[in-house]
């Protein structure tokens, strides 16, 4: 595999989905990188389910155990930040107050089912806040590699791994493509630079419908 975006470029493409004033939760792993690629002139509020709204960059200063994001990383606070307890945090999440959740994925189905918490071949996984975010966020973007390291497609007719939530994914951003989940199936809207749509389809189990406006990603 030579074609395809780096993890950073996947994060950069996801960041283009975020707009001024949005409240955004970034999942652990690849989604965390999204905060590095924001346009500086836009105020976006990052929510961390352990009880911060409005955290800033990863902190390089002396470690403060009480100033971490949901991935356990030390963070700074942006102007206007607030703290709250977990009950309030998940009321915010379930209550539809999060505009966008960017989550990692193991598999996404053509119906927008998401599997991202349990790897049967490793006999393990954890739920954390993923299920509440998948059910509660107004828009769910999944950022992941298009296939596993050994080439197994992650975008599938149906998920084989245990689900995080059924029918919740709105947009899939991978190293190869941007795919919109629509009621009628999956719409291929963008391909990575230099990647052929047929190649994307060959790495996808589910059928992709090319958008009439199909274009190359602008990065």
């Amino acid at each position: 595999m030579t074609a395809g975006l780096s993890r950073e470029l996947i994060a950069l493409r996801v960041a283009r989905e975020l707009r001024e004033g949005m409240v955004v939760n970034l999942g652990i792993g690849l989604p965390t990188l999204v905060s590095n690629f924001l346009p500086p002139d836009q105020q976006i509020l990052f929510q961390s389910e352990n009880g911060i709204l409005g955290y800033g960059r990863i902190s390089e200063e002396e470690f403060d155990p009480d100033l971490i994001n949901a991935g356990g990383q030390p963070v700074t606070l942006a102007p206007g930040a607030s703290f709250f307890d977990s009950a309030t945090s998940f009321a915010m999440i379930r209550g539809g107050h999060i505009d966008v959740a960017v989550l990692g994925g193991l598999e996404v189905s053509e119906k927008g089912d998401l599997a991202n918490w349990y790897l049967p071949e490793r006999g393990g996984g954890s739920i954390g806040g993923a299920m509440d975010l998948a059910f509660g966020a107004r828009r769910v973007i999944v950022a992941m590699t298009h296939t596993t390291a050994d080439g197994r497609p992650r975008v599938r007719t149906r998920c084989e791994y245990p689900l995080t939530a059924p029918g919740v994914v709105d947009l899939i951003v991978t190293d190869l493509a941007v795919i919109k989940v629509e009621p009628g199936g999956l719409l291929l809207t963008e391909v990575a630079p230099g990647v052929d749509p047929d190649f994307v389809q060959s790495r996808t189990e589910a059928r992709l419908r090319p958008s009439p406006d199909l274009r190359e990603m602008e990065l």
């Binding site: 307890d85 945090s89 998940f90 379930r94 739920i127 954390g128 299920m131 509440d132």
Partner: peptide, 24 residues
Amino acid sequence: VPQGTFVERIRAAGAGIGGFLTRT
């Protein structure tokens, strides 16, 4: 347990509520 359900189950116990309903 999903994290939101985890904390709300604890909150319910402390608040004298017999459970709660969630889509999660």
